[in-house]
């Protein structure tokens, strides 16, 4: 069609050739008696069926119903996927219900707040101050000074323990990430840290209770004018030199032999080995070269708890 030709879809103008042709298409009238015939048919027609009990719903309601069913189905599938751990396998973090509730209510959740641990790990563990013990302790002042130093060392140890826990968790996560293994989600890590913190706190509480009982006994003894022995301070019998030499011999053994020998040690001997290992680890964490294990424990070694 050229530009000058009229649009063939334009309305049909009266009097045009097409209109003249179309006007020739005449329709006949309805025959006489048509109305009577329809009325007779209507009379003979059976009564219409009753209305459905459930009225036909509008289109908008049907669409809304389908959207609602779709949303519910999606929610059910998502919940099932989260419950079966499928989303975690796809590395999609799924917060726990407690976490979501805490974020909604604004209340901090104890288990989901690893900040204190991180802060403790970030702060370098203070090096325990050297405790100097001059002679036997037989006065309340000397005992108070001794206990003050012990508390200082204990606080440093606790910081060290927490730093070690944090370092181990981090290194394990890094190792798993480097090996392509699944790493725990932030929620899982928070749960793990909370669980460990709970165990550490319980251990410290038990140690505090034991130390408090021992300190009461020491105070009573000092008030009676008696001098405190090392056994009073540590709560343990002193390690005999033979035992110490035996422990030193453990270091040259293979892991299997060492494990066997470890099982054969008495609880006291095991504790001594543990203390030495702790001292080496603390030195390693603080960046200082590990001190050579002492053959005989110094006189001012704080009590282990």
């Amino acid at each position: 069609m050229s530009v000058n030709e009229p649009d063939p879809g334009l309305p049909i103008a009266p009097g045009s050739p097409l209109a003249r042709v179309l006007d020739g298409y005449r329709a006949p009238d309805l025959p006489a008696g048509f109305a009577d015939r329809v009325l007779a048919a209507a009379e003979a027609r059976p009564a219409p069926l009753p209305e459905l009990r459930r009225p036909a719903r509008t289109r908008r309601w049907r669409i809304g119903q389908r959207i609602a069913i779709g949303a519910l189905s999606f929610g059910a599938l998502a919940t099932a996927a989260a419950a079966t751990g499928l989303l975690e396998q796809l590395a999609i973090p799924v917060p726990s219900a407690e976490t979501v509730w805490a974020s909604l209510t604004g209340k901090a959740q104890a288990s989901a707040a690893p900040e204190p641990l991180v802060a403790a790990a970030a702060v370098p563990a203070p090096t325990p101050a050297p405790v100097v013990n001059e002679g036997p302790i037989d006065t309340p002042e000397e005992l108070a000074e001794k206990l003050r130093r012990v508390d200082q060392v204990r606080a440093g140890r606790r910081e060290e323990r927490r730093a070690i826990i944090d370092q181990r968790i981090k290194s394990e996560i890094e190792r798993r990430g480097a090996a392509g293994l699944r790493v725990p989600t932030p929620e899982e890590e928070a749960r793990l840290r909370a669980k460990i913190e709970q165990a550490v706190t319980a251990r410290e509480q038990r140690a505090d209770a034991a130390a408090a009982a021992r300190r009461e006994a020491m105070q009573r003894k000092v008030e009676n004018g008696e001098a405190l022995t090392r056994e009073d301070l540590t709560g343990r019998k002193p390690v005999i030199p033979e035992t110490r030499e035996r422990l030193r011999g453990l270091r040259g053994l293979s892991p299997e032999e060492r494990a066997k020998a470890w099982r054969e040690l008495t609880p006291e001997e095991r504790r001594l080995v543990t203390e030495e290992l702790r001292a080496r680890r603390a030195a390693r964490l603080s960046g200082q070269p590990a001190a050579a294990p002492t053959a005989v424990p110094p006189q001012d070694t704080p009590p282990s708890e």
């Binding site: 298409y25 329709a27 006949p28 309805l30 025959p31 329809v38």
Partner: peptide
């Protein structure tokens, strides 16, 4: 209705049937 039906079908009897059916 009859005119519409007739011009649609081209058959007067068919158109009557359609009108009757519509009325019923």
């Amino acid at each position: 209705l009859h005119r519409v039906a007739y011009r649609m079908t081209g058959d007067a009897h068919e158109a009557e049937d359609i009108v009757q059916e519509a009325m019923l």
